[in-house]
Design a protein around this nucleic acid. Structure first.
Lengths: 117, 117
DNA sequence: TCAATTAACTTACCATTAGTAAGTTGTTGG
DNA sequence: CCAACAACTTACTAATGGTAAGTTAATTGA
């Protein structure tokens, strides 16, 4: 288990942390990863799953995830119009990060009087 | 302990997750929280601690943290020019989220051949 | 079979957010 | 009293995001 002290001060870890949290925090990025945790999905399934996301941003986010090695893109049945996206093992690893956010929200809501804003 | 399935499907949790990950993923936000995990700090200490952050963005991020109840702002010695920022208990709770990202990075680096880009 | 529809983008354009630099206002130290 | 500093604030340019419409190959269905 880590303590923050064991990491603070190392430039390399710090820079990677910085990159990572801003990467997974880009608009819709978290929701796309969250959605793919349910299993591989096709493009339109993700659009339908995430309320409010636009075509353009979904394409952009998926491309970024693929180029970071967190998601794979596969053409189904030798067709250019059937595409499936799936988390790589590395991408799956982000489940722990997402769960820690859900945990934080839950304990926070136990304290907050008004949790609806 | 959570499973993603126990959360997926509930609109309320989903919306909060979405808000939260994009909030903590705004530019420099993660680094500001990370920096304050070491303890309360004054404005200029944070600037010096975080390489590359600008005055304007630090002020903006700190104000956002204060209005979300994750950080408190205190004027020291009844002076308007000595200010200290400190994480609230709720803000401290984000340590677990940050540690989970550091954990993820560590396991990822064990797989990645080139981890320097 | 051929027109309409769908899947998965792509382009263009405007709005919002971020980055840089300079200015402001109290405070402190010599 | 004057210079330097802390903690902002303002103004302006660059990057990113949102909306809408267009494109192209595949599929459905009359």
């Amino acid at each position: 288990m880590h303590t923050p002290q064991s990491h603070i001060g190392t430039k390399h870890v710090c820079k990677n942390f910085h990159r990572t949290i801003e990467f997974i925090g880009r608009r819709w990025m978290g929701m796309v990863i969250y959605s793919l945790l349910e299993g591989p999905k096709r493009y339109h399934e993700i659009v339908e799953n995430i309320d409010g996301i636009s075509d353009r941003l979904l394409t952009e986010r998926l491309n970024e995830l693929v180029s970071e090695g967190l998601v794979t893109k596969r053409y189904l049945e030798s067709s250019l119009k059937k595409v499936e996206y799936e988390l790589t093992p590395s991408g799956e690893g982000l489940k722990e990060v997402i769960l820690s956010i859900l945990d934080w929200l839950e304990t926070k809501e136990n304290y907050d009087v008004d949790s609806n804003k």
